[in-house]
Design a protein around this nucleic acid. Structure first.
Lengths: 351, 351
DNA sequence: ACTTCGTGATGAAACGATTCAGCCGTTCAT
DNA sequence: ATGAACGGCTGAATCGTTTCATCACGAAGT
């Protein structure tokens, strides 16, 4: 016992010798290859157990070209949406016996290309990419399946939430509450999801000409973060009372929080005088006051689908339509029916 | 050219043949081994360039036992503090030519052990571990350097912020503002950092007997999250006005937000009637209303130090004192001097 | 002049798995 | 009865490096 403990490492050869079979046979036992009699299979298994043998992943992948490793490249982990995505992807990969190499591109096209090359040289079995924003002719590494998530890219298999449908959900909800002047903090125009959400905003309005007319001038563009949205919201809310929106759709939770802040600063109570619906619905949405009504992306589903696509080798997707997942509206406390605006001219007092 | 493109892959042998040297020589050129004449070095380099040869990391690590991979295991990526830690660690590793395998333990000791074993079998060059909470005899994989971060563990090289000193910083600040009844939302008692922060809280008070006497009954324990802290805060703030704390130190930003919410619900204005200082100071602290005054952990430094420790092979740390990094107080808008409490009996009205 | 050394380069043996060609014995169809 | 097909196993080649034991050669020491 002690001697065997002192031994450096047990390899497939040791197992083979001990079990009186060839190394190839042991290999087939390990890999559950059918061509092995039950008797031998059991015998080998027992020896493996006894020796505490574990195959070396490195040697294994070197020969087989399968690394049981997948790469994930995202722009920024501080964005809770991406953090959640990574967490779910890791979970999905782990449950399928893979590990994940994590990388950040910092929204830099150069870094992104570099990271992809590194992953390729590591011979990962697949890559999940959330591309950096803006224009770029992405060059996917040859021979490594890749799936683009969230920010879709033409020509690559893509998976994302149905941003357009989700936004429509949000605005439909506001319309149903009775709102007609609905502002929109759109995301940056170089972001695909932002554009999609804006489309969804318009989709919803197109069913209600009155709202469409009143709301179209109330669309402003801002980055996805708190500060930009606070600024943009201040602009919208500084309008005269009968012109300013009674509700605002924001393209991210952080934007919504900036919007709430702007409303507070202007003395506009939320949701009494201003309803807010946001997108993403990450943890954040639940701890802010008031809790956000928001459209939740099915991040878990997206992550699972991405991993499954890679690991099941569903390559043909490349030129088919991207996969979309339905969003869901989660009601919080940031929405209410619109106040009846007090007549501007005279007060209808009794008598 | 076209033909060479069609070729499967160029290996070290191709380079050797083309440059008229032995493969071993090429290897030494690649690894900047000194024993190689300038002439040959140049010649080989040129061939490498021309052929676009890139060494295969797998084959490389198989022989050399060096994978240029480090593993990082954290309990939960949705905790923004850990997300930031991972982000920084990835950055540090990348800048040193390493990649990182990311794993989540979900605060489960069993999963944690499993992940560590996986990393060991992948022959990573080092492991950064944020251990799951609670008791456990952690078994570090043999032969892989490991550094424990944040939640220190006796017997392992550890790196963390100076939680105790940081907490003292926070409470000193409150004392300086004039507060004497200072509440404390302590973290869960099975968490090492939580205990350290509580120590720091006590350290600060020990300099001011008056405050110590008034504050000691105001310590309550809660999980690090929003909801627990909201509950705990409500308990503290529901006390009579001259008994309840005029300031509260919370052990996390999320706790602080729960605390603010509790104060709001009770009609206690922050910071006018209640000052709050929290720990961590992640992004969150900046977008909440009011912005949090908080103690910031130098996450970047911690991550860099962890990576450096692993990659520079500073193993002897194991039984030395853990490495601590100083925290820094960041002023926000959640703190103010205490209100002068209005006399309880009669109002000192003129006349 | 002869050994001793050191330097730079070589060729082959690891590393630890997978996989491929081949072999032997059965079984099945003809 | 005979050949083809096939299942089950073996042994060796292979993957792309690093590293080790040598070796050739010239400089230096005696």
């Amino acid at each position: 016992m002690d001697l065997s403990q002192a031994m450096k490492k047990i390899s497939i050869k040791d197992v083979a010798r001990e079990a009186q079979v060839a190394t190839g046979t042991v290999s087939r036992v390990i890999n559950d290859h059918p061509s092995v009699t039950e008797e031998i299979r059991v015998r080998v298994r027992r020896v493996i157990e006894r020796l505490g043998y574990e195959p070396d992943p490195l040697a294994r992948s070197m020969r087989s070209k399968i690394s049981r490793l997948i790469g994930i490249v995202i722009p920024d982990l501080l964005n809770p949406f991406f953090a959640e995505l990574v967490q779910h992807a890791e979970q999905a990969a782990t449950s399928r016996g893979h590990n994940v190499i994590f990388m950040t591109s910092f929204d830099d096209v150069g870094k992104e290309a570099d990271r992809l090359a590194q992953l390729a040289s590591r011979k990962v079995d697949g890559i999940i990419l959330v591309p950096s924003n803006g224009f770029h002719a992405l060059k996917a590494p040859k021979g490594v399946p890749m799936v683009v998530v969230d920010r879709l890219l033409p020509g690559y298999p893509g998976i994302s939430a149905d941003h357009r449908g989700g936004a429509k959900l949000a605005v439909d909800y506001l319309l149903k509450l009775g709102h007609r002047r609905i502002g929109c903090i759109a995301g940056p125009s170089n972001s695909v999801p932002a554009k999609d959400r804006l489309e969804g905003f318009r989709d919803a309005l197109s069913a209600c000409p009155e709202a469409a007319k009143a709301s179209t001038p109330l669309i402003v563009e801002a980055a996805f973060d708190y500060h930009s949205a606070r600024l943009a919201s201040t602009y919208l809310l500084a309008m005269a009372r009968d012109e300013r929106p009674t509700a605002i759709f924001t393209s991210s939770d952080q934007q919504a929080i900036g919007c709430i802040r702007a409303a507070n600063d202007l003395g506009i109570p939320v949701p009494a005088a201003l309803s807010i619906v946001s997108f993403d619905r990450v943890q954040l949405a639940d701890i802010v006051t008031p809790r956000l009504t928001a459209v939740r992306q099915p991040i878990g589903d997206i992550a699972s689908a991405a991993v499954a696509t890679l690991l099941d080798g569903l390559k043909p997707h490349a030129f088919e339509a991207p996969m979309h997942f339905q969003c869901e509206l989660v009601e919080g406390e940031s929405t209410a029916p619109p106040q009846v605006p007090p007549p501007l001219t005279a007060r209808k007092d009794p008598g």
